[in-house]
């Protein structure tokens, strides 16, 4: 028993002496001129998309740095989809006294506490991809879901008109609790209201669940055999849609009389080949590269002392078709496909 007390006492002495020896500078990162230390707090890193973002950020920050005479230093941590761990990780970044914290919030409400803590320590905060519900960050960078859907829909309208098709559309929606899913649907319908190229005959919510993508497609085709087109909120579950189409004998590339006209979003690895082969007619990219570019520029502006007032910087993406999908630059889905 006494020995244990002794050991604890020794450990405490060690700690305090080191703190004393070490604690002279409360500043943990020695600040050099023109070095931007960015703390990057991922909520998870099990998707290749996250790794793609990170790599593009580092890549573009070199380019940007050379032009603007600054050097970026990235401090990255990951919190395994645990909002508590993410709060701790951001605390650690604050303790490191980084210049700007970039976080992809796991929980839109919980991130507020971290934003407040960073601001209290005088550190700029940018939310990335997902936004904060309550407390406002200095800036937000993400995808422009509304305009992403609009550009797809506008191209789709031209396409149908050119081919003289009267569109009867099955819409597979995302998770309606996800703001991105809602905005994609809104974007789609805003174009539909202005054109008479098609009519959406049924809306199927999928909760982003691949199984519901499959069953939703199958059921809708059953109920509406006249359907000849689809709008799919994201192509990440395209293989599920494909199997439903195959089962209904409707999976044919463009040019075939049984072809179902398909507009979708993102150009994920799961949809990339289908588009190349003409099964998918149009999609607007979810551009990891341009998100990263936008982020680096926002961080650079914040570092220079600009006040962005919590503005949202949204990236809309590029229209991809079977003709051009292979030639688009910076397609993360191509570069990170296995």
């Amino acid at each position: 028993m006494n020995r244990k007390v002794l050991v604890i006492a020794l450990a405490l002495m060690l700690v305090t002496s080191m703190m004393w020896a070490n604690g002279s500078g409360e500043q943990s990162e020695s600040k050099e001129d023109n070095v931007i230390v960015v703390g990057l707090a991922w909520n998870e890193k099990m998707q290749s998309l996250v790794q793609a973002w990170e790599d593009y950020m580092k890549m573009y920050s070199k380019e940007y740095g050379e032009e603007n005479g600054v050097t970026f230093k990235w401090v990255v941590n990951v919190s395994d989809s645990d909002p508590i761990q993410q709060a701790s990780n951001i605390d650690d970044l604050i303790a490191l006294n980084v210049d700007v914290i970039v976080a992809r919030p796991h929980d839109a409400a919980a991130i507020g506490a971290s934003i407040r803590a960073a601001h209290n320590a005088g550190i700029k905060f940018v939310t990335f991809d997902r936004s904060s519900d309550g407390v406002k960050p200095d800036a937000h960078v993400g995808a422009d879901s509304f305009n992403q859907a609009v550009s797809t829909a506008e191209y789709f309208a031209e396409l149908l008109t050119e081919n003289g098709v009267d569109g009867k559309v099955i819409e597979l929606m995302g998770d309606l609790r996800d703001i991105n899913a809602v905005q994609r649907s809104d974007g789609w319908h805003s174009v539909e209201d202005k054109t008479d190229a098609w009519e959406t005959i049924i809306q199927v919510p999928t909760e982003w669940n691949p199984e519901k993508f499959r069953s939703g497609t199958a059921n809708a085709l059953e109920a509406y055999p006249e359907a000849n087109a689809m709008f799919i909120a994201s192509d990440f579950a395209f293989s599920a849609v494909q199997s439903a189409l195959e089962a209904a004998d409707r999976y044919y590339p463009v040019g075939h009389p049984k072809h179902v006209w398909i507009a979708t979003q993102d150009v994920n690895p799961q949809g990339f080949d289908a588009m190349k082969e003409g099964y998918i007619d149009v999609a607007t990219t979810y551009d990891a590269y341009f998100h990263a570019v936008e982020l680096v520029e926002v961080v650079g502006r914040l570092y220079k002392g600009e006040d962005l007032g919590g503005e949202a910087f949204l990236v809309a993406g590029r229209v991809a078709t079977p003709e051009n999908v292979d030639k688009l630059d910076y397609m993360w889905t191509k570069e990170y496909a296995e």
């Binding site: 989809s81 645990d82 909002p83 508590i84 709060a87 796991h106 929980d107 409400a109 919980a110 507020g112 506490a113 407040r116 309550g134």
Partner: peptide, 9 residues
Amino acid sequence: RLASASSTM
């Protein structure tokens, strides 16, 4: 600490 409660906790 998180000023919120959620199922993700």
